[in-house]
Design a protein around this nucleic acid. Sequence first.
DNA 1: TAATTATGACGAC
DNA 2: TCGTCCTAATTAC
Length: 323
Amino acid sequence: MPEGHSVHRIAARFRSDLVGSPVSVTSPQGRFVQGAAQLDGRVMEDCFAVGKQMFARFDNDLHLRVHLGIYGAWDFSTLHAEEALAGGNTAPVDREGQTGTYAAAAAGSMGAPRVSRVRAGEEETSGTASGAGEQWPPAPVGAVRVRLLTDRVCADLRGPTVCEAITPHEAAAHLERLGPDPVVDGKRRGWTRFREKAAHRRTPIGALLMDQSMIAGIGNIYRAEMLFRAGIDPYTPTVDLREEQLRELWDDWCRLLPIGIETGVIVTRTELRGKAKQAMLESVADRHHIYGRAGEPCRVCGTTISLAEMQGRKLYWCSGCQR
DNA sequence: TAATTATGACGAC
DNA sequence: TCGTCCTAATTAC
């Protein structure tokens, strides 16, 4: 899940569902109790992503900084109480204690409200109020590092590599260390920044694309797929690339990131249309050119796809197509 | 029940 | 380069 596209999606969801609301902040797991107390009850004023990091600013100027790492995830639940509210004579969910069950909150209403849950980036599922697990707010499941709760939205974070409350100064310091992100910098300024940082490095391009201070948001899947699309051997020292090749990599990231944000899926086989595209979106086996396909034939030239370790991560490439 | 794996990054050598 | 941290799902036994 979490390469840059996912984090931008999550930030967008925070902007639409939590920004502007006072937020109850807790740490059901108990490992973020102090930080949660600093943010609890404050209004979230903004939320944005740069690369793989998310920053949410609260009305006391503290920022919640979250990095999902390799397996962190946000789960969202939403209280759908439109029917209850439309009844006009029903109290909404208790905003202070948040202890009332969802059925109780809906007492006397016409339609049954629902609680829907969704893992960031997946489709929504919903249930009815009668189920044991359909309380509002939902009972925390597993190791929930932080829970952000408004009157109708609950966001649970588990397994992050970073979750901290920091000052604006500290947030600025983190942002400064990050390379350009197409969404933040735009195509032109981003290219200027990327070229200045990267062009003279001897680092293999396969490693450089994973360096978040060089270019922000690319992870192991986009790395493999972008180098395949560009026909570049991952071991090529960055300095040995022609400027057009480096430019093409940046332009491709500017192309792919918005598709990932839009679809919630890492789409790199952009040549596909119709049924082939549908199959690609539905089947893991068809999803990528290179990533996860070691030992299988390249879809373009038939060469067996190679696998090696680079910086402790699995690197996939086609020695036939990438030179 | 245990081992394995994962879309990440950091600090110690 | 290696070990470490964070969690959950899947696979092996």
